[in-house]
Design a protein around this nucleic acid. Structure first.
Lengths: 230, 230
DNA sequence: TAGATTGTTAATCGATTAACAATC
DNA sequence: TAGATTGTTAATCGATTAACAATC
C-alpha cells in the first residue's frame, strides 16, 4: 500500500524561485525610492529582467498578495518577500581574509536595506591584524571560534587564498556555522546540513568566453539555440 | 508530410553543462599537479562535487574522449574542455572601478591556468588614476573606448558603484564589447547579442539567509532540499 | 458594466539520474 | 576471459511559459 496523505499545503519554495526573490526585492526597493505605491507583474518583471508569467508564478508560492485588476502594493510585497527570505531578523556575518576582496566585502554597506551585520573580519597575517576596515578592527584568525560563539555568527564568508579555504571552512563548521559563502576557487567539502554557495570569478569568465567564442565562430549549427527554426 | 532530416550531429551544449565545464577543468588541473595521468568519472565527479552520471553525460556533449574500462586521460581531457570553452585563445579583459573590488579582481592572477589577460583597469576618480595595480597603471574612464579598441577587449568587468554601472555598460557595448561581467547590484539592460553575467554578494547572502531560517524553523515541510548543487 | 490584471492550469521544455549494453 | 568503466537510453523530476478563468 502506498501512502496517500492529502498533501499538507505544499510548503517548500522551489530553489529557482528562492534565487529570484532577492532580485524582485531589489526591484521593489527601487520603486519605493521613486515613490511608486503599486506595480503590476508586467512592470515589475520588466525591471527585474524576467518573464511576467514566471514572476507571478514565483510570487504565488509565497501566497496571494496581489489584487486582480490592480497589481501589487509595493511596500506590502517588500515586507512579504523580506519575511520569506528571513530578512526581518538580523544575521551576523564573519569574513575571513582581509585582503582587497575581504575589504571590498566588508565595505559593501547596503545589503539591500539591511538584514545582515558584519560582525568580524579575520586574517592570519599579523601585519594586517589590527587594521581598521569598515569600522571593524581586523582580528587574528585564532580568535575565530570565540568570536563566532560570542557574536552568534551564522554566515561565514571565505575570502582567503585557495590553499587556506578548506581549513577555514572546517573551523567555521566546527564552531557551529551552517551557511558558508565561498570566494576561493576550490570545492569545499562540508557535512550534511551545511549550505555552501560559491562565487568564482574565473568560472564566470570561462562561461563568457564560451559564448564569446560561439559568436566569433560564425554560428554554425544551432549556434544561438532558438534563433533558428522559431 | 513532415520533414524528417536525419539531424545534423546536434551541436549546442546545454547551458547547465557549460557552467560545469570550468569546475571539471579545475578538478583536472589539480590532478595534473598531483601527477595523476588517468581518472575515472567516479573519481573526477567526486572531486568536482557532482554525480558521476551527470559528469559522463556532460562530457558526452563534447565527444567521446574516455576509454571504457580505463577512464579519461587527464591531459587530453583538459585540452578538450579548454578548447570547447575557448581557452586555447587569449581573451582581453578590462575592469572598470579601481576600488577594493576592482583591485582584488585585477590581482586575481591565476585564471585557471590562463586564457585571460587583464588589459586595463579604469576609474573615474582622478586621485586614483595613475595608481599601479597588478602591474597596470589605472587609466581614466574617458579613455575606455580607445583602449577597448586598441587592446581588442572582448570581456568587460564592471566593479563600480551601482549608480555608475549602466553607464559603463553602455560605453562597453557601444565600443563593441559583447560580454559583460557585472558586480554592481543592478540589472543591466543590453541589446540582443550581448551576454551579461552577474555576481551579487547581497543576493548570495539572502539565499543563504532563507535556508538558514528554514533550519532554525525546525524543518517543517521539505526543509533543506538537497542542501545544494551536489 | 468594461477593462485590467492576478493566480492557476496545463503544456512544454530542459536537466538529472539510474541502469545497462558496449567495449576497453 | 573477467573486471572495469564509458557512453547512452529512458524514466523522472523540476522549471518555464502561454493562456485564461477568476475577480478586482
Amino acid at each position: 500500500m502506498t501512502r496517500r496523505t492529502p498533501r499538507p499545503r505544499e510548503r517548500g519554495i522551489p530553489e529557482a524561485t528562492v534565487a529570484r526573490l532577492p532580485v524582485y526585492l531589489r526591484a521593489l526597493q527601487s520603486l519605493t525610492e521613486r515613490g511608486t505605491p503599486t506595480v503590476s507583474s508586467g512592470e515589475l518583471a520588466s525591471i527585474a529582467g524576467v518573464n511576467s508569467a514566471k514572476l507571478r508564478k514565483d510570487l504565488s508560492h509565497l501566497g496571494s498578495y496581489g489584487t486582480r485588476g490592480v497589481g501589487y502594493d509595493v511596500e506590502y510585497l517588500i515586507y512579504q518577500i523580506s519575511r520569506e527570505l528571513g530578512l526581518t531578523q538580523d544575521w551576523s556575518v564573519a569574513i575571513v581574509g582581509a585582503g582587497n576582496l575581504g575589504r571590498a566585502l566588508a565595505n559593501y554597506g547596503g545589503f539591500g536595506t539591511r538584514g545582515f551585520r558584519i560582525a568580524a573580519l579575520f586574517d592570519a597575517d599579523p601585519a594586517v591584524v589590527g587594521d581598521e576596515v569598515a569600522g571593524l578592527s581586523v582580528r587574528h584568525i585564532d580568535t575565530l571560534e570565540d568570536v563566532v560563539s560570542v557574536e552568534k555568527v551564522s554566515i561565514g564568508v571565505i575570502a582567503t587564498p585557495a590553499a587556506a579555504a578548506q581549513g577555514v571552512c572546517d573551523r567555521f563548521v566546527s564552531a557551529g556555522v551552517t551557511s558558508v559563502l565561498n570566494f576561493a576557487p576550490v570545492v569545499l567539502s562540508v557535512p550534511d546540513g551545511v549550505d555552501v554557495r560559491k562565487v568564482d570569478l574565473s568560472i564566470e569568465l570561462q562561461i563568457l568566453a564560451f559564448h564569446e567564442q560561439r559568436k566569433a565562430d560564425g554560428h554554425e549549427g544551432p549556434g544561438w539555440i532558438g534563433a533558428l527554426e522559431a
